[in-house]
């Protein structure tokens, strides 16, 4: 139906933006801590799951955003120039804490899942 990506992708991103605004609206309305963007994610997942929104309406724009997700957080990451001092001196410890905590998450989340899956497979 639509051929021109240069037109269709911005329109679909605008639709995603509307869903995001709806999520933000819900967050403000109920005074929630959950980010509006995550509420928007749940809204879109529900719409897709119940076939209230057909896939083709959003497909190209959504795939584009997911593929280039890193681009959208570059400006925020650049902000580290204002906070580089945090990692000086004692701040180096934070890197160790981050690594240790990451290893812990990987091992625990993975082992719990593995245990449950194996129990199911044996049953």
């Amino acid at each position: 139906m639509f051929k021109d990506k240069a037109i269709i992708i911005p329109i679909q991103i605008a639709m995603l933006y509307l869903i995001y605004l709806a999520g933000k609206g819900i967050q403000n309305l109920f005074d929630l801590f959950i980010p509006g963007s995550v509420i928007g994610l749940l809204i879109l997942f529900t719409l897709l799951s119940f076939k209230l929104v057909p896939e083709w309406i959003l497909q190209q724009g959504v795939s584009f955003m997911v593929r280039h997700l890193p681009f959208f957080f570059i400006p925020a990451t650049v902000g580290i120039i204002s906070y580089a001092y945090v990692f000086k001196g004692k701040g180096v410890l934070l890197i160790g804490i981050g690594l240790f905590s990451t290893a812990l998450v990987m091992a625990m989340a993975g082992r719990v899942t593995q245990w449950m899956v194996k129990r199911r497979e044996e049953a």
Binding site: L16, G23, V38, G40, L41, L44, L48, S63
Partner: peptide
């Protein structure tokens, strides 16, 4: 555009 980018994760 970070907000809509998070919403897009519903698709995968």
């Amino acid at each position: 555009l970070l907000g809509p980018a998070v919403v897009a994760l519903a698709y995968p």
